[in-house]
């Protein structure tokens, strides 16, 4: 998994730390806070529950937000997911 290039240059407007939290908590945090960023801006979720690898993109599909991509966190296991608020 890697960020598309444009996402790498645009810093996230908000970062959510969901490390150590099991699904569905990271998804609930994302849903509760995406409204805090302006439409078109990117929100980043840090998470290490393996279920988030599937559930963050699946949530974006269900809620019609744009899943920008995911990068692996180094050295700690986990991922940084980026989501663009669409509406």
């Amino acid at each position: 998994m890697a960020y598309p290039q444009d996402a790498a240059v645009q810093p996230p407007a908000l970062r959510i730390d969901a490390l150590g939290k099991k699904c569905p908590l990271p998804i609930i945090m994302l849903a509760q806070r995406i409204g805090e960023v302006p439409i078109g801006n990117v929100i980043e979720v840090l998470a290490d529950d393996p279920a988030t690898k599937t559930d963050v993109p699946a949530w974006c599909g269900l809620k019609s937000h744009e899943f920008v991509g995911a990068g692996e966190l180094a050295p700690a296991p986990g991922w940084a997911f980026r989501i663009r608020r669409s509406y």
Partner: peptide
Amino acid sequence: AAMGALTH
């Protein structure tokens, strides 16, 4: 996961 479906 293979279907890209919500797992929780």
